[in-house]
């Protein structure tokens, strides 16, 4: 799976680096001073690199935990996100990471202890208030779990600090590490979904809808709280039928009591990212979708966006109480 590993000199002897390298004895190891030398170089092609991404082991120096926009909140006043990884195992055509990053290589920041220290400082700033921490903005939180051991290192912090809530955003079925342990009440495992036919067209290499649903059922059975993320909503002529079927399938099977939150939002990208993706994938139909430009973002025209959000909202609110529903009514 990983043929090449770049290693920042600074963390070459970090225990997590050594443990990961042990997993890949055959991989070619290449040392670098800073991961940006490899990852941020302009003359490289994301599409080509996606065929065989390398792993880059690095140290995150600053900006470890950052405030997240209010539109993406799921019930708390104070919201932050962090990325122990950059890039994702999957190849979803709508993913903004393809526009954000020059490289498709996976960057793993091995200094988890610094992330946790930063989270503790933030928690201390918000005395006695709930603080939500989101993981999975710049990566899929669980997709590389067997390599990253992410949950094993981050969960103790949340077990100790019940005021903090962790959202793990994923499409992965790598849930073994979660099933092996007792559920953490202040952790939400949030799965992203699009209808089956859309997922088949756009979510390359991601587990299919049934597998994701099965992972949810297994986690709920073990007592874990689940989030459902219908973001991005993808427009197609039969979207109403396809989303109805998806909602019916999911809500007929999951336990509403162990469903922490549901959110949704229309497909939209910063204009620069959208234009880059168009160039990378000129034959991709998604980028020929009806589109409008607003505030330097490109997304669906308002009419389609509102129609889709209203349609989905109507169905979702029949299944879950309003306090668990968090639509993202961001403009495109």
């Amino acid at each position: 799976m990983i043929d090449t590993i770049y290693i920042e000199e600074e963390i070459a002897n970090h225990p997590r680096t050594l443990a990961i390298l042990k997993r890949f004895p055959e991989a070619t190891k290449i040392s670098c001073q800073r991961y940006g030398e490899v990852f941020n170089s302009k003359s490289q092609n994301f599409r080509l690199q996606k065929k065989q991404p390398a792993l880059i082991l690095a140290r995150k120096h600053k900006g470890l935990v950052l405030p997240s926009p209010k539109e993406y909140a799921i019930g708390a006043e104070h919201n932050y996100y962090f990325s122990h990884m950059l890039n994702c195992l999957y190849d979803c055509r709508y993913c903004f990471l393809q526009g954000k990053f020059q490289s498709a290589h996976y960057v793993l920041f091995v200094n988890y202890e610094d992330f946790i220290e930063e989270m503790q400082l933030i928690l201390n700033q918000h005395d006695e208030e709930a603080v939500h921490f989101f993981s999975g903005y710049d990566c899929d939180s669980l997709a590389l779990e067997p390599v990253t051991d992410f949950t094993n290192d981050f969960f103790p912090f949340f077990e100790k600090n019940t005021r903090a809530l962790l959202e793990i955003r994923t499409k992965s079925t790598q849930i073994r590490s979660l099933l092996k342990r007792s559920p953490i009440k202040n952790c939400v495992v949030a799965f992203s979904f699009t209808p089956d036919k859309i997922a088949r067209a756009l979510e390359n290499k991601a587990p299919d809808i049934n597998k994701r649903l099965q992972a949810i059922l297994d986690l709920q059975k073990a007592g874990w709280q689940i989030g459902l993320r219908f973001d991005p909503l993808i427009y197609t002529k039969d979207y109403a039928k396809e989303y109805s079927e998806l909602f019916n399938e999911i809500f007929s099977k999951i336990d509403p009591d162990l469903t922490h939150s549901i959110s949704l939002g229309g497909f939209r990208l910063p204009k620069d990212y959208f234009r880059k993706l168009e160039k990378l994938y000129p034959d991709e139909k998604l980028f020929a979708s009806p589109q409008a430009e607003e505030k330097n973002n490109i997304g669906y025209p308002a009419e389609i966006r509102h129609e889709m959000l209203d349609f989905c909202e109507n169905i979702i609110t029949q299944h879950v109480p309003a306090e668990k529903f968090f639509p993202c009514h961001e403009s495109v």
């Binding site: 030398e37 170089s41 690199q49």
Partner: peptide, 19 residues
């Protein structure tokens, strides 16, 4: 070659071997 370093200024480049 997977990494090129210029001895003169110690700058490095990384040809991408994705095959």
């Amino acid at each position: 070659v997977n990494k090129i370093t210029d001895e003169h200024d110690n700058a490095s480049w990384y040809p991408q071997i994705i095959f």
